[in-house]
Design a protein around this nucleic acid. Structure first.
Length: 849
RNA sequence: GCCCGCGUGGUGGAAUGGUAGACACAGGGGACUUAAAAUCCCCAGGCCGAGAGGCCGUGCCGGUUCGAGUCCGGCCGCGGGUACCA
């Protein structure tokens, strides 16, 4: 019986694992613990290839650790709050809760057949009251420790729908439903004091050795530490304007002072001047994203005010309001230095302000026209300056000298600032964790009592009109003030869903506890030894989680060692796919699933209507763009092992892949072949042709070495290539039955993290006891990894001309002699005398002529 | 705009600074078969050459090095993030 029947095999072994309880994680001092976690999914409705890729990778790691004797925790849950559930409710009238739990059931049903080594007993969804109630408890603890506060913040406001919009709901500056031009508006919001941890979060990046360098760099830039000069310009009419600059060395090039439209001075001026008020309103148009703000056309308005230059009080600069100055960074005011800042230059050219070049590059001094010269901090530049005495300096020396000068003369201070802003967590939406506070007319904002948690979301809500249904619920807001007992109103804002995902990894260590965590469990299981997820989470999710771990430690919910919760991080590339778009009558995009589109050489059309479809090349799979591919077809056609093998073999895990199913069938054929070869070996008569075979066993040990290394370093595709090669060797080998049986056993073991069901089946057919899942991982014999002779390529001037076979430990002089004696080398040299011969032992010979 | 990546045959990709293209997919040829499926064997970066062999070749331009896909500088293209998508 060598037929490969995936469906039968997979059901059989999943049942066996289940019955043996091999994936149930319990604290134990017998073995080292290992916590492997993949970023949990948003329950969008169907799993897609990105999920299969992510969870298969994590599963390979988990199963390999199981086989190397670890006590493995490998849990799964659902990041279940969020906007799509409300959108679905608006679109089709259901309830976000039903939609979400329905999706979870569907996706769990699609994931289980993959045979993942997950401890399903720990599963939870963040929208479970048992979870979000504990999150509310955390919020109250944070509040008590001063880690949360309220202040005003800007949101996208849709003036037609009278509702706050997410950035995603603002398309080209317009509301996605109303089409109205979006305005920026201030609301009072809750904030986490993450910026208090800027230095610590930056500093600790240095200790995250097992994180990708690119992620650490992105976080470093995001935190954005800078040292600069803070000082005030004195206004000629009294008062002052405080500015912050990282390039005080360009101060002599100042040609204006700019303030943000949201600067208190701009607001003050707007009260008297209709012109300023109108300008502020103009600047308030469009979305709040940094991208939108940066790319917006530069707009400015001269306030008519003047300020004195700090280095020369007779020098007056005009004060402009400019839309590209952000109130959130620095002081909300800058001095404009057009010669040395491109944005300032564009602004000054537009409004005809002077351009003063204060630098000349030492070797090259073209005057600034339309391209600003940004003085490099490291290059030496001539600095035209009359007051600090610096003539030629590096940019950094000039910066430091200017700060010193300002401090000495008492008009400015060197200040360290961070770009990182506090984390606004308030959302004016229903489907999120309610913020557990109460607004009382006499007591103000009062935290809810812990014994009243969870503050549950009401079920009776409707989505037939825009806005937050909690706001218009007839009774939900009504409550007693926890402080004075008088009638009061609940907060109707809910929490950002990033809060939910900032501590779920800790909750998995004690998922049913009556407190957010249990110290004993957290101390045993934390940290996450290997965290795996998409590179798109490189900044926000990972930074927020790092902050949360610190905050939870401060509140006694995590041990100190867990303040960096993820020991090792692997960021997988995304699975991408083309997006298919048509336009509605208002020219707004309508997205289509790949299966609804027929793609021809001449273009693409909708299958149903024949309407022409625009193809947007490739982007990460996302439900909202409908460019998702359902793996269920592959699983039902070929089985889970084929799907797993294929996603692992197809591409390096860190790289993005454009999804294509070509090759899935080949993966199935290969697994069938392995099944056939191993079964034949299992059924062969051991006595008929016993005996070992060194060549096969050498190959086997090399394969153990390479595959183990590949699995441990996320080189899955290369590991699989080795397994292909080893399978070819095994199938052709004329070795004795004993050696073939040993090789087949090792092949099965090495494949088991990737194709666990087939591996179990073949393990059993080979007559081994127990489960391959828990059998000890094979160990390579170092003595078998080295060959007696090696092939050395010989280069002449860096071009390969020949190769020679030499004993592995032949010394350099001998190798050189052998190389120069080679016929092909002699021919290539054509009588020329080598100037130098470079012998890299075991690697290469290069003859230089 | 800004920050971070990525770019290698027809395709997915391999390659501690050391033989570029492992291992596959698609393709071509062959064996087996009445035929097909399945399986097995062989070929295969481009150009020139009968062959031996030669030249070119890892997005583009330049640099470091005995030697560069790999390191450095500058471009181009694509992707991710850009604080309310998750």
């Amino acid at each position: 019986m060598s037929r490969y029947s995936a469906a039968e095999i997979e059901a059989k072994w999943q049942k066996a694992w289940d019955e043996a309880g091999v994936f149930r994680a319990e604290r134990s001092q017998d073995k080292p613990k290992y916590y492997v976690l993949e970023m949990f999914p948003y329950p969008s409705g169907r799993i897609h290839m990105g999920h299969v890729r992510n969870y298969t990778m994590g599963d390979v790691i988990a199963r390999h650790r199981l086989a190397t004797g670890h006590n493995v925790l490998h849990p799964m849950g659902w990041d279940a709050f969020g906007m799509p559930a409300e959108n679905a409710a608006m679109a089709s009238g259901g309830h976000p809760k039903d939609w979400t739990y329905g999706n979870i059931a569907d996706m769990r049903g699609q994931m289980k057949p993959l045979g993942l080594s997950i401890d399903w007993s720990r599963e939870f969804a963040t929208c479970d009251p048992e979870y979000y109630g504990q999150q509310q408890a955390l919020f109250l603890d944070f509040l008590e420790k001063g880690l949360v506060y309220r202040k005003n913040a800007v949101v996208n406001w849709d003036p037609v729908d009278m509702t706050v919009l997410a950035n995603e709901q603002v398309i080209d500056g317009k509301g996605w439903r109303s089409g109205a031009e979006v305005e920026r508006r201030e609301l009072t919001q809750w904030f986490f004091r993450i910026s208090d941890f800027s230095e610590e979060l930056l500093e600790a990046l240095g200790s995250l050795d097992n994180w990708p360098a690119k992620v650490r760099l992105m976080q470093e830039n995001w935190i954005g530490k800078s040292r600069g000069l803070q000082f005030s310009f004195e206004r000629t009419d009294g008062g002052e304007i405080e500015v912050y600059t990282t390039r005080p060395d360009t101060l002599l090039g100042a040609s204006f002072v700019g303030i943000s439209p949201d600067h208190p001075l701009a607001k003050e001026l707007a009260e008297q001047s209709p012109e300023v008020a109108a300008f502020r309103a103009q600047c308030a148009k469009g979305g709040t994203t940094e991208e939108a703000l940066e790319k917006a056309e530069k707009l400015g308005l001269d306030t008519g005010l003047k300020v004195k230059h700090p280095l020369d009080p007779s020098w007056e600069l005009p004060v402009w309001i400019a839309n590209f100055i952000l109130m959130d960074y620095g002081t909300g005011a800058i001095f404009g230095c057009p010669a040395h800042d491109q944005r300032d230059l564009d602004f000054c050219r537009k409004y005809d302000l002077p351009v003063i070049d204060t630098f000349f590059a030492l070797n090259d001094s073209t005057p600034v026209e339309t391209e600003a010269f940004v003085p490099p901090k490291t290059d030496r530049v001539k600095w035209v300056d009359h007051f600090t005495g610096i003539d030629v300096a590096t940019g950094q020396e000039a910066i430091d000298a200017t700060i010193d000068y300002a401090e000495k003369h008492g008009w400015g201070t060197g200040v360290t600032k961070y770009r990182l802003r506090d984390w606004g967590l308030s959302r004016q939406r229903y489907w999120g964790c309610p913020i557990p506070v109460v607004h009382c007319d006499t007591c103000g904002v009062v935290p809810e009592k812990k014994e009243n948690l969870p503050v549950r979301l009401p079920d009776d809500v409707s989505f037939d009109q825009p806005g937050n249904p909690l706001d218009r619920h007839p009774t939900w807001r009504d409550c007693e003030c926890p402080n004075c007992g008088a009638p009061a109103k609940r907060e109707t804002d809910t929490m950002d869903t990033f809060v939910d995902s900032s501590w779920y990894f800790a909750r998995f260590t004690a998922p049913r506890a009556e407190t957010p965590t249990v110290m004993e469990d957290a101390t045993y299981w934390m940290n996450v030894d290997q965290y795996i997820g998409g590179i798109e989470h490189a900044i926000l999710h990972l930074l927020y989680s790092r902050f949360f771990a610190r905050a939870m430690h401060i509140c006694g919910h995590l041990p100190e060692k867990a303040i960096e919760p993820f020991d090792a991080l692997f960021t997988q590339g995304m699975v991408t796919h083309a997006i298919y778009v048509t336009r509605d009558e208002n020219d707004r995009p309508v997205y289509h699933f790949p299966e609804d589109v027929e793609v021809h050489e001449s273009g693409a059309r909708l299958g149903a209507t024949g309407e022409e479809v625009e193809i947007v090349p490739s982007a990460k799979m996302s439900k909202s763009k409908k460019n998702v591919v359902d793996p269920v077809n592959i699983i039902s056609a070929y089985g889970a092992d084929t799907a797993r093998w294929f996603v692992l073999s197809d591409s390096p895990p860190e790289r993005d892949v454009e999804w294509t199913a070509a090759g899935a069938e080949a993966a199935f054929k290969h697994l069938s072949r392995v099944c056939r070869i191993v079964t034949e070996i299992a059924e062969s008569d051991l006595a008929a042709n016993p005996g070992a075979d060194t060549a096969l066993l050498r190959e086997m040990h090399k394969t153990i070495h390479d595959v183990t290394g590949g699995v441990e370093s996320f080189g899955f595709n290369a590991a699989i290539a080795k397994l292909y090669a080893f399978t070819n060797t095994l199938s052709k080998s004329q070795a004795g039955a004993e050696a073939r049986r040993e090789a087949a056993t090792v092949l099965v073991q090495l494949m088991s993290p990737m194709t666990p069901h087939l591996a179990e089946e073949l393990w059993a057919r080979l007559g081994h006891e127990g489960l391959v899942t828990t059998a000890p991982w094979p160990v390579a014999d170092a003595a078998m990894l080295v060959d007696d002779t090696i092939t050395l390529p010989i280069q002449i001037n860096g071009k390969r001309r020949a190769e020679i076979e030499v004993p592995k430990d032949m010394d350099k002089a001998e190798v050189e002699k052998a190389a120069l004696a080679n016929d092909a080398v002699i021919r290539s040299l054509d009588g020329a005398q080598p100037k130098k011969v470079i012998v890299v032992p075991g690697r290469i010979v290069n003859v230089v002529i």
